[in-house]
């Protein structure tokens, strides 16, 4: 369901990341077009989370560039030199990028409704009335219209993750990042979350999804990237890559997860 014209929203070029001596990302290139769902798979420790966290500036970038919507992430370029952005400017860039975590990370002292309202009110300065109305719409959209007053500890894992998705959507981001959103869930709860993500993809949201759900990649993905050891090993149309992997490491990985 690629949307034309193909306009790159996210461009990752030559991304490297070191943790001390540990070279975790070794030159990642990845382009995501507007409205595309880009699925990233790979074995544990291959650097998938680290890559997502770099896009959102939760990690500093050791080398390379990331731009979202034509805007360089984390830096300002002056006369060919990069300057770190101030924390306020970084916060502003993050508003355009929603992130959903493996472990939900809902605010436990706030109800589902308050979790969703928090950023629109505190960051965008929306009025509470407007934010509340939007929060209820979003809760309905993720199928939790009747759970507005529940605290996270009164919700199942799948419900919490759907609230987390609604919370990210409340900021109207142009890009959504998902870091293994269903890995912490009981199998019977995975489907509800994936359905919300499918609807989101249909609505035209640009998404980068790190997941082990191969079915989701095949059905919803516009592009599949296989990462291993901090590099992109293989990328292409999900159905082709899954049916006919070229690289031996991709073959080996798929034979284990399929």
């Amino acid at each position: 369901m690629t949307i034309t014209p193909e306009k790159p929203l996210v461009q990752i070029e030559g991304l490297h990341k070191y943790y001390g001596e540990h070279h975790v990302l070794r030159g990642i290139d990845l382009t995501v077009n507007q409205g595309e769902v880009s699925v990233v798979i790979g074995p544990s420790g291959s650097g998938k989370s680290t890559m997502l966290r770099c896009v959102n500036l939760l990690e500093t970038i050791s080398a390379g560039r990331i731009s979202v919507g034509g805007q360089l992430i984390g830096y300002r370029e002056v006369k060919g030199r990069l300057h770190d952005l101030k924390t306020k400017e970084i916060a502003a860039q993050r508003r355009e990028i929603g992130m959903v975590f493996q472990r939900f990370n809902l605010f436990p002292h706030k109800t589902a409704m308050q979790n969703i309202m928090e950023a629109p009110v505190q960051v965008k300065g929306q009025s509470k009335t407007v934010a509340r109305k939007r929060a209820l719409e979003l809760l309905d959209r993720v199928g939790l219209g009747d759970r507005a007053g529940h605290y996270p500890n009164q919700l199942s894992g799948g419900q919490q993750q759907r609230v987390a998705i609604a919370r990210a959507l409340a900021m109207d981001p142009e890009l959504m990042l998902f870091d293994e959103p269903t890995s912490a869930l009981d199998p019977e709860l995975v489907g509800d979350v994936l359905n919300v993500m499918k609807d989101l993809a249909k609505s035209g949201m640009t998404m980068i999804v790190v997941t082990h759900e191969i079915g989701f990649a095949r059905e919803v993905g516009d592009r599949l990237t296989f990462m291993d050891g901090g590099v992109v090993v293989e990328a292409g149309d999900p159905r082709e890559v899954l049916a006919n992997p070229q690289h031996p490491r991709t073959k080996e990985f798929l034979s284990r997860v399929l």
Partner: peptide, 16 residues
């Protein structure tokens, strides 16, 4: 740690 990361990802400032 995930709490401040989630809040950062929403674009909240350090003080908030």
């Amino acid at each position: 740690q995930g709490q401040s990361e989630a809040a950062e990802a929403l674009g909240m400032t350090k003080g908030k």
